[in-house]
Design a protein around this nucleic acid. Structure first.
Length: 647
RNA sequence: GCUGGAAUAACUCAGUUGGUAGAGUACCUCACUCGUAAUGAGGAAGUCGAGGGUUCAAGUCCCUUUUCCAGCUCCA
């Protein structure tokens, strides 16, 4: 007998009892809902026999790992359906992901939307057939042999790698379908009641664009139809917050065919928000001891050669002239600010007393991104960032790094984005096949070791990103997800122990010796276009009052109150508020509806009553009629909200 | 760059087997002078993304191209 510690008590079972049997003993409801199990904290299959005393947890669809087992089994059902309908398809991988599952297939022609419908129907049929999943193990050589017989070249490749370890290889079988797989999986395909195949896209084998491109089918599934409906509804609602949709509808930006890809045109509202953000950031940075610079937007090829960007990123630069003709001048628009700002430091010889030198610039950059990369305001070819380079003595590294992080967190918190940010410690990969990184292993160990110590001292919760570093040093990247769940970098703080030497950036230390400084490359609010995009998504277009392009709209009830309205508008404007009047001969309900849809924070309704009383009737966009108050009281209230940067 | 989807009035979208281009909203004009999310009537508005081709005839079929969307890859 073995003692099994469950959530509420400890029970005894026959040695060799499976996790599924335990679930059944606890109740058929739990057994039916069970997706996977955890034995002593280790995720495993429900089929796993229990041979020692242990703690057991039964995972259902409500649990993240249980859900993934459910979706992973769904991906096997997808593969089985594809095999039935397209027998020639070769199989790559089919895992569960955060919001469903996918499977990669090598097929002659990618699936059409009609194909996906047929596949969905076949999947539903398979679920009805209700196959049990059966797990079996084979020694590595037999596993390879089986996969070769099945004529699955991608699986053979995967299996060969695993077989180096000499451990038995695990397979799952359901009906006529067998797949190489580590699991865990459901006991049967029957619980997969609601299925939706959401997309069919291209994906490279092993994530490498040099490899063959496969056909990836994405899907999502649930135990109940209602859950699927709810999920699809939530996706629709997320799309309603998509900055690419509301940013255009609310006239923050637009794109124009003949201007070009990745070159959004900021309309007055978007331009105003960016201006407000920039002024604020520049002022706060100044208060933090930063010195503002203003450097050229382009430079000769020679500058980029010193920095290394010419060798590493020529393809990503907009070059003016023939890059290969050394006999003629050749310029390039700047893709970063580093070597420009270094010239400020290099203007004369520097003393250790001058460090840290915190240089910042509201810097417009140009990057010739590949044509398929552009996305709304998030990924563009011309953008403006609050870029800083701190030239520091080595002993100042930790304090300055902390300062950069605190500053970035302050900015992100104030604009409402910090709570959804995650932190990534981006490190180099010595095995990077493209020879991306400069410097020696010792230098990298030194820089990464320093960053790790600092991050651990701060107690920051971060994940590690291997092969995500800059070519000159490790980064702390602050990441943010858009409404579709796609993650991008919002802010980055980088430690660079390499570039100072390339540019001959020395300082004279207290002992009169010439020394190389460290450099921190950092953004404080990142790219303004991207920040605006995320704010539009976060606030669903209703930016906080202090950033709202139009803060107040005055609405007279009838045309004969136009003058009074304009009078109020003038008073609000002179109080520093961004205000307009709606003087059209429309009903008040109509004007309000329009202002609500445009997310105008405050609407002031002016009628004869208010005119007589000398008041205004205040309505906020949060659908609240705040009643009447004096204009001065309203101005005081609005100013308070603006000054505190209330969200 | 790759895979798939899309582009028709300012916007959101219909448009059948190829046969004279449609609706709602917005816009303009007029009437109404209005109390917290849509007043009524009338009017104007489209080289059907662009360029080729097939055809007596192309929004519709074929090719090329641009832009937009989702994903992959990339992101100094």
């Amino acid at each position: 007998m073995v003692k099994v510690k469950l959530r509420d008590d400890i029970r005894e079972f026959e040695n060799g009892t499976t996790a599924a049997d335990v679930a059944k003993a606890l109740g058929m409801g739990l057994y039916k809902a069970a997706c996977a199990a955890k034995i002593d904290g280790k995720l495993c299959d429900l089929r796993t026999p229990i041979e020692n005393d242990c703690a057991l947890e039964i995972l259902t669809f409500d649990n993240v790992e249980g859900k993934k087992a459910f979706w992973h089994t769904s991906s096997h059902v997808l593969a089985q359906a594809v095999k039935r309908l397209f027998p020639k398809a070769k199989f790559a991988i089919g895992p569960a992901v955060d919001n469903g599952f996918y499977y990669d297939f090598d097929v002659e022609k990618p699936f059409s939307p009609e194909d996906l419908e047929k596949i969905t129907a076949e999947m539903k049929k398979i679920v009805k057939e209700g196959f049990e999943l059966e797990r079996f193990l084979l020694p590595p050589d037999e596993a390879v042999k089986l996969l070769e017989e099945m004529d699955e070249p991608y699986k053979v490749e995967l299996c060969r790698e695993h077989s180096d370890k000499g451990e038995p290889i695990s397979f799952y079988r359901q009906g006529e379908f067998t797949d190489l797989c580590a699991g865990p999986h459901l006991m049967s395909v029957a619980p997969i009641k609601a299925i939706k195949l959401t997309a069919c896209t291209g994906a490279y084998w092993r994530g490498d664009s040099k490899n063959a491109q496969l056909c990836r089918v994405y899907g999502v599934s649930f135990p109940k139809a209602a859950q699927l409906e709810e999920h699809l509804k939530a996706l629709e609602e997320a799309k309603m917050r998509d900055h690419n949709k509301i940013g255009r509808e609310l006239e923050y930006f637009t794109t124009v065919d003949y201007v070009g890809q990745g070159l959004p045109v900021l309309l007055p509202k978007g331009a105003r928000v960016v201006q407000l953000l920039q002024r604020w950031v520049e002022d706060v940075e100044q208060a933090h001891g930063c010195q503002l610079t203003k450097t050229p937007l382009l430079a000769k090829r020679e500058l980029y050669k010193i920095s290394g960007h010419w060798d590493h990123y020529l393809d990503g630069m907009f070059v003016l002239g023939d890059p290969d003709d050394e006999s003629k001048e050749c310029f390039a628009l700047r893709p970063m600010t580093c070597p420009f700002q270094y010239q400020v430091y290099l203007n004369r010889q520097r003393s250790y007393r001058e460090l840290p030198m915190r240089l910042t610039e509201t810097s417009t950059l140009f990057r010739n991104e590949a044509s398929g990369e552009m996305h709304g305001l998030i990924r563009v070819r011309q953008f403006t960032i609050s870029e800083g380079h701190y030239v520091i003595r080595p002993d100042q590294l930790e304090e300055e790094f902390r300062g950069c992080l605190e500053l970035a967190k302050y900015f992100l918190e104030t604009v409402g984005l910090l709570e959804d940010c995650t932190f990534r410690f981006s490190q180099w990969d010595p095995a990077n096949p493209n020879n991306k990184y400069e410097g020696t292993a010792e230098q990298w160990d030194h820089a990464q070791g320093a960053m790790k110590r600092i991050l651990d001292n701060i107690g920051l919760d971060y994940e590690v990103g291997i092969d995500e570093a800059a070519f000159y040093g490790p980064k702390l990247d602050i990441q943010y997800k858009n409404v579709f769940g796609k993650e991008d970098t919002l802010v980055t703080i980088q430690i660079d122990m390499l570039l100072a030497e390339k540019f001959g950036m020395y300082y004279i230390d207290s002992d009169n010796s010439k020394k190389l400084p460290y450099i921190i490359h950092r953004t404080s609010l990142g790219c303004y276009e991207r920040t605006l995009a995320y704010m539009l998504e976060h606030f669903a277009g209703a930016l906080p009052l202090w950033l709202a392009p139009e803060q107040v709209r005055v609405m007279p009830l009838s045309e004969n109150l136009s003058e009074a309205a304009q009078d109020i508008e003038a008073k609000l404007a002179s109080a520093g508020l961004r205000v307009s009047s709606d003087l059209r001969s429309e009903k008040i309900g109509y004007k309000i509806r329009e202002a609500q849809l445009e997310k105008v924070p405050y609407m002031l309704v002016i009628g004869n009553k208010e005119l007589e009383e000398g008041t205004v009737s205040v309505r906020s966009r949060k659908n609240a009629n705040l009643g009447t108050m004096s204009l001065d009281d309203f101005i005081a209230m609005a100013k308070e909200e603006i000054e505190t940067k209330a969200k």
